[in-house]
Design a protein around this nucleic acid. Structure first.
Length: 412
RNA sequence: GUGGCUAUAGCUCAGUUGGUUAGAGCGCCUGGUUGUGGUCCAGGAGGUCGGGGGUUCGAGUCCCCUUAGCCACCCCA
């Protein structure tokens, strides 16, 4: 047993398994890059107040932040979610709107770890600021749907709702609060004393008590103001037009308080654990103001890389790629030729590796088999041969002067 | 944060009511065989049994603590 191990709730991803991370991120980068989103790099810790703006009543802020005082006495926190940092950066730099950015970043939450739930996990996501256009909601929601399709995932369910805005939500909130107060003693223990914080959360409670008590509660979707209703209708129509299927779920409440209007969540149904949320997001038209900036509408999402990969495992798609090398060099003459030839092959743009330590022919050949290379170049005192590694074939003796060209020819 | 289960070789796991040098398969290393590599044969390396304490003549096995993982709650990505 090693003396040290990765801290609780964290993990290492080693090659070759890590190749899936690489490929997933590059797929995502390609997808959102084609849609006009540029990479945004931001610090993985911020003034703790930046994250507090996402909502004081949320678990993320109340009990899951990795926060500490730095040597200058500043109270900072490791990023628990992605949107706050991006909106902070937007407000700080005031880029041209609409501003469309994507990110890939570690996220930290101090929770009890479980499969699919970690203290450090990784998300890819996008944020689009400066437009309230419902068609932007459609674009943003369609991106993860397209990603999942490209990965080959079948069993992803999109849940969708609207939380209203400042025009209609306050009245609804009061109505719901009144409804809940009448039934306060019927709610579960957790929510009996917490309905004032965020009454919407009670609707999402999984406990039987809350479920029955709120069965006939008023629904935000029935109380949307005209503008919000029109916005939501356009979002639905847009998704329909793009062939993105969804389920309207009026009980959907996301973990963050900043959402307005459109919110959504992608559920990986292949995962039977309760950690089956693959990603989610929504509109946050008041967050820029809360961050001290000008009123700026915005919408975005975050996707959990580990959750997506777990879902891929469960559906048997997007496995670790087989071949990562073109050619493997074996040298039984001392190693100088391997050193020079490998360098030449790489300079020619081929993926090449070699055996080390001047081992036996058999040991080097074994290493070549493990390498996943398609071809081996075998350097022996009297000749140089090219051999196939993945299927049977005759060794082909090659001229020492043109090894690179001949390898290239064989690969073509 | 609450509760339950688990921890033995690089990996997957055996290990009796506590008993003497802790095992297997796979993987790894060496040699032989093979069509100079995938087969087969022989040999070898590798474990303070997660860590600490206790009970006992004796602990991988029983007890306590601790660390980590898993599961449920909770929450979410």
């Amino acid at each position: 047993m090693p003396t040290f191990q990765a801290p609780k709730g964290t993990f290492d991803v080693l090659p070759p398994a890590s190749a899936r991370y690489e490929r997933l991120v590059s797929r995502f980068a390609g997808l959102v890059g084609r849609a006009g989103y540029g990479l945004l790099v931001s610090p993985m810790f911020e003034d703790v107040e930046v994250f507090r703006r996402v909502g004081e009543s949320t678990d993320v802020v109340r009990k899951e932040m990795f926060d500490f005082e730095d040597k200058g006495g500043r109270h900072v926190a490791l990023r628990p979610e992605g949107t706050a940092s991006v909106v902070r950066a937007y407000v700080e730099h005031r880029p041209q709107a609409p501003f469309k950015a994507w990110y890939v970043a570690p996220h930290f939450r101090h929770e009890r770890p479980q499969a699919g739930r970690y203290r450090q996990h990784h998300q890819v996501g996008v944020e689009a600021l400066g437009s309230a256009d419902a068609d932007l909601d459609v674009e943003v929601i369609a991106l993860p749907a397209q990603l999942f399709r490209e990965l080959g995932l079948q069993r992803i369910r999109l849940r969708l709702t609207s939380l209203g805005d400042d025009t209609c939500r306050p009245a609804y909130r009061e109505e719901l609060l009144a409804y809940l107060r009448e039934r306060q003693d019927q709610l579960c223990d957790e929510h009996q004393g917490r309905i004032e914080d965020n009454p919407l959360r009670v609707l999402d409670c999984k406990r039987e008590a809350c479920r029955t008590a709120t069965k006939d509660s008023p629904r935000m979707l029935d109380r949307l103001c005209d503008e919000c209703a029109a916005h939501f209708d356009r979002v639905k129509a847009g998704l329909d037009a793009l062939g993105v299927t969804y389920d309207i779920d009026p009980t959907l409440v996301r973990g963050l308080d900043y959402y307005t209007r459109t919110t959504f969540e992608f559920e990986a149904q292949a995962l039977d654990s309760s950690q089956n949320g693959a990603g989610g997001g929504g509109r946050y038209d008041r967050l820029a103001e809360a961050m001290g900036g000008p009123p700026t509408p915005g919408i975005g999402f975050g996707l959990g890389i580990e959750r997506i990969l777990l879902a891929c495992d469960a559906e048997g798609v997007f496995g670790v790629p087989e071949t990562t090398l073109d050619v493997f060099v074996i040298d039984t003459t001392g190693g100088e030729t391997a050193r020079d030839l490998t360098a030449a092959l790489r300079a020619a743009g081929l993926r090449a590796d070699r055996a080390w330590d001047n081992r036996s022919w058999k040991a080097q050949m074994k290493a070549a088999m493990h390498s996943t290379a398609a071809l081996a170049v075998v350097v022996e005192p009297e000749r140089i041969t090219i051999r196939t590694l993945r299927e049977k074939g005759e060794a082909e003796t090659v001229d020492g002067e043109n090894v690179v060209d001949q390898v290239r020819k064989r690969l073509a």
